[in-house]
């Protein structure tokens, strides 16, 4: 790679935080625009008559024509897209084909349930991953490290529906300790949430723990840590004041992936445990071929991913600004 001297007066200065912030938000906004195009293309603009697909083979031509008119399928694609985007921006992305409820109300009504499950899972995931990652990372190569790494590696690979079913079979069917599902209605008590939270945590703890372990191993090998240990600094102080602050910034990005994975995993977990959140709502909308709802949910999930990644970028920027300045 060759480098050239900068022209006088154009010395590359690290971009200021407000400029970086504006840049990131612009990228996120671009991603959202692109995602809305993809979601619309997948649901409304691909070849094939959506109205026929939604109504099935038994539908009469009159019914198909009525639905085509209702969905606006007889209008040019670009106009339909502009209408839909306009609706999304003004908070009115249409109504459910099945219930007639506004899509925005349907999504808002289910968000609380999903947020509580994902939030509870995070409360379990972060401390467990931190404890496992630090324990493994401080003694790399030990039996404890090997066991933790193996369990984390295996756990992160298992699809939520499969681990969930095995846990339900053991703890709900065989032992009868916990309810198998929420029964499709509202929560009947905190016990209903135990298995969903465990299933979500099982999958995500491994990812975070492994990232924390790598951070701890690398920081422990850093010269300043070796030097401080030689000087006789207590292990507790060393860990809390030097090793963890050095090891944690890179895990912020992984934490973002965990949060994103939680929301993705919620689709399966809510369907499995009949929890009334956005994941189950999305699956129901897909099974009912309720296109306005499917579009709404798809945009919600993609937006969550974009926003979570944006926040992670900004937080890691704040924790380790020198890394960003070097980019």
């Amino acid at each position: 790679m060759t480098t050239t001297a900068p022209a006088p007066g154009t010395v590359d200065r690290p971009r200021t935080l407000p400029r970086r912030l504006v840049g990131r938000v612009a990228v996120a906004a671009g991603q959202l625009v692109a995602v809305s195009v993809i979601v619309f293309a997948l649901t409304a603009a691909l070849p094939g008559d959506t109205a026929e697909v939604v109504l099935g083979q038994q539908a009469t031509p009159e019914q198909v024509a009525a639905l085509r008119a209702q969905l606006g399928l007889d209008r040019p694609v670009l106009l339909r897209f502009a209408d839909w985007v306009g609706g999304v921006l003004t908070g009115d992305p249409g109504r459910s084909l099945v219930t007639g409820v506004p899509v925005a109300d349907e999504l808002a009504g289910r968000l609380a349930s999903t947020a509580s499950v994902a939030g509870l899972a995070l409360l379990v995931i972060v401390p467990v991953a931190l404890a496992a990652g630090v324990t493994a990372g401080r003694r790399p190569g030990s039996v404890t490290d090997r066991v933790i790494t193996a369990v984390a590696t295996a756990g992160q690979a298992i699809p939520e529906f499969a681990s969930g079913l095995v846990l339900v079979a053991v703890f709900a069917v065989t032992l009868g300790w916990l309810p198998a599902t929420a029964g499709g209605g509202s929560f009947t008590g905190p016990a209903v949430l135990v298995l969903p939270v465990v299933v979500l945590a099982l999958n995500q703890v491994g990812r975070l723990a492994r990232q924390i372990r790598i951070g701890v191993v690398e920081t422990e090998r850093a010269e300043y840590v070796v030097h401080l240990r030689r000087l006789g600094m207590g292990e507790r102080t060393l860990l809390l004041r030097h090793v963890l602050p050095g090891a944690l910034p890179p895990t912020v990005q992984q934490l973002a992936r965990v949060v994103d994975g939680l929301l993705g995993g919620v689709v399966v977990v809510e369907a499995l445990f009949a929890l009334p959140g956005v994941g189950a709502g999305f699956v129901e909308a897909v099974q009912g071929r309720d296109l306005p709802l499917v579009q709404g949910y798809a945009l919600l999930f993609a937006t969550t991913t974009v926003v979570v990644n944006l926040l992670a970028d900004l937080v890691s920027d704040r924790l380790a600004p020198h890394r960003e300045a070097l980019r």
Binding site: T43, D260, G264, V267, V294, T305
Partner: peptide
């Protein structure tokens, strides 16, 4: 930024 499962579910819908 598209969750993998989302793409398959939207296609199925």
């Amino acid at each position: 930024v598209l969750p993998p499962l989302l793409v398959l579910l939207v296609l199925a819908a």
